[in-house]
Design a protein around this nucleic acid. Structure first.
Lengths: 139, 139
DNA sequence: ATTTTTGCTATCGAATTGAAAGTAAAAATA
DNA sequence: TATTTTTACTTTCAATTCGATAGCAAAAAT
């Protein structure tokens, strides 16, 4: 675990954990697409390198945003799940999605995202509720 | 300007611009602390390197999140201001602040931030209104 | 018993970061 | 007006991180 933060600012401290190009995409795939295994998470449009994914998962786990478990019928496969802290990143994920949907279209061809026109509080609640429902399968 | 985005996802595209450790801190300092010059922005608790700051300002300008102007009485000093798109990052900045304030305290000594207990919509509105008021001085 | 798949790790070249020094031009000062 | 200081960066280069690719051990699948 990295011990040195750049400052005591909450934004700066958060960026010291998730402020790279990949971490929030990993959280996105876990949270919105309910991806749980190393292979599922690495299998995204953006094609994260396995060494980078491995390092990021370790870091996120060490800061308690995710945890790793296994299902009894498969000793090999790691199941990565978001912790409560990780789930609380939902507003950040949704705000990035809303911002990018509105402001990035002149620079990149942006996919249409279903459900983004709903009230943002409802979107956040729905995403979190869906994830929590899925978590019930692992208790 | 970098032309290649990793995918058409709005989150991924946004992270391709601001997904480094410094960009959102620059936006924070401009938006919340009303910092406008190279020196002011580089003079933060986190101590960004001048070469990195210069590169980030150019990138943010090229993607139209900020613009550069000068005041008539000072030909030398560049004044960096947020564009409308840049100001629209306020919800992201505030969500990072709220998340870090709640979830980072076990890992880092987090500064108390005034005003974070208010309703988040009000915080966002206030920050944006304050910045827009300040902008009136430059028209 | 054998083959395939998964979950990584290792290697190494490429890219980025960032410390520190330097520079030109403008502002400030004498 | 001459000189000094400050600003806004740029440059250099070592350190660090990224990421393409190949490889490996163990478990699952056949």
């Amino acid at each position: 675990m990295k011990k040195e933060f750049r400052s005591g600012c909450p934004i700066s401290s958060t960026l010291d954990i998730v402020g790279d190009k990949w971490s929030l995409l990993i959280i996105r795939d876990m949270l919105v697409k309910h991806k749980k295994t190393f292979k599922e998470i690495s299998d995204s449009d953006e094609k994260i390198a396995p060494s980078i994914l491995s390092a990021r998962l370790k870091l996120l786990e060490s800061y308690k945003l995710i945890y790793k478990t296994k299902v009894p019928v498969n000793k090999k496969e790691n199941i990565y799940l978001l912790t409560e802290k990780g789930i609380r990143l939902t507003p950040i994920i949704i705000e990035f999605s809303l911002w990018g949907n509105t402001n990035m279209r002149e620079f990149n061809e942006i996919d249409a995202i279903e459900g983004l026109n709903a009230d943002k509080t409802l979107i956040i609640q729905t995403v979190q509720d869906n994830y929590n429902s899925m978590l019930l399968n692992f208790r």
